[in-house]
Simulated scan of single mutants.
Amino acid sequence: MKKVTIMDIAKKVNVSKTTVSMVLNNKEINVSDETRKKIFKSAKEMNYIPNTIARSLSTNKTNTIGIILPDIENPFFAMMAKTIEDTAEKLNYNVILCNSYNNTAKEEKYVKLLISKLVDGVIFAAGGKSEHNLNILTSNKVPFVLVDRYVESINEYSGVFCSNEQGIKLGVDYLYSKNKRKIAFVTGHKDLKIGEIRYNAYKKIAEELGVYDEELIIRDDFTIEGGMNSTKKLLALNKKIDAIFYSSDVMALGGFKVLIREGYRVPKDISILGYDNINISYILEPELTTISQPIYEMGQSACELLVNMINGTTENLTISLNPTLIERDTVS
């Protein structure tokens, strides 16, 4: 079936192609209100869809942004994607969502795809060592904003982050206040900057409190499976553990499942603390105690910052938000 064009509308209304184009693009033109109404009515009846690529070539803008997230299966990023999309819609922008699965090769593929689609900008949550992919965006003069995930040269880029050091300190101090001294810590792999930042923050505060134990540090994927694997490794050590601090809620969900299967009572036998405060965390029974990141505020701020950069109303800017402790039922 042939695509409806501006020429088809022009023939139906009996006006020139230029007249239809200028009316549909809300440009100044001397036509009657009746003709204007006929053009819009015909466009609607004929299911006309504008050629955004052609329009972007003349305006140098597509009103489309890309989002590259590391794992859309993680409710943290699903919630963030929803917030970005809602904010973008209010700002009259469309969204193309890409899921990298924490794979930098996939990131590169999507970066190049988004550039080829002439997006106006990109919101980027890094899946690993992503400097090369950010350099591709920079070389092509595509504005971007980092969100949640750090990269090595963080000071060079705009971004929206929640203080990981503060969040980890909140968690360790809280567990210590509950007389937990045998604390295990589960974090991401070393090649993931945010996992290393959370580990370094944990090590610093745990050493200061005299509760650091290298054997009780486990690294794995920020996934439910990663949490399950990490917990099995901890239990296999046959060491006294009175609390496990998971540096993501999805890891905590996996760990919770293993502990229950192995006959542990949470929190009576082992307390668990999560990180993120995803919406599933309060559905568990007992409900998950966690460090809350302001996910909606992060997504909204990232989108608004990117649009301001696209419009030239702001330059590189880093926004730092604060985490909070959410006391529920998995720490006693």
Rank of each mutant, 00 (worst) to 15 (best):
K2A: 12
I6H: 06
M7V: 11
D8I: 08
A10G: 12
K11P: 05
K11R: 15
S16G: 15
M22P: 02
L24E: 06
N25H: 08
K27L: 10
N30M: 01
K38P: 01
E45P: 00
I49G: 13
P50W: 06
N51P: 12
T52G: 08
I53A: 14
S58V: 03
T64V: 08
N74P: 04
N74F: 02
F77H: 13
M79S: 15
M79C: 09
M80N: 13
A88M: 04
K90W: 00
Y93G: 11
N103F: 04
E107I: 01
L113N: 09
S116N: 10
G121Q: 05
S130Y: 01
L134M: 05
T138L: 03
K141Y: 05
S153C: 04
V160A: 07
G171H: 03
G171E: 02
V172R: 06
D173S: 10
N179D: 14
R181I: 05
K182Y: 03
K182D: 12
H189T: 12
K190F: 01
R198T: 12
Y202K: 14
A206S: 10
A206L: 10
V211M: 07
Y212F: 15
S230V: 09
L234Q: 10
S247G: 06
S248T: 15
V250H: 08
V250N: 13
M251Q: 10
L253N: 07
G254D: 06
G255H: 13
F256S: 08
S271V: 02
I278P: 02
E287G: 11
E287N: 12
L288C: 11
L288K: 12
I295R: 08
M298D: 05
L306R: 09
T314K: 14
L317K: 15
L317T: 15
P323S: 10
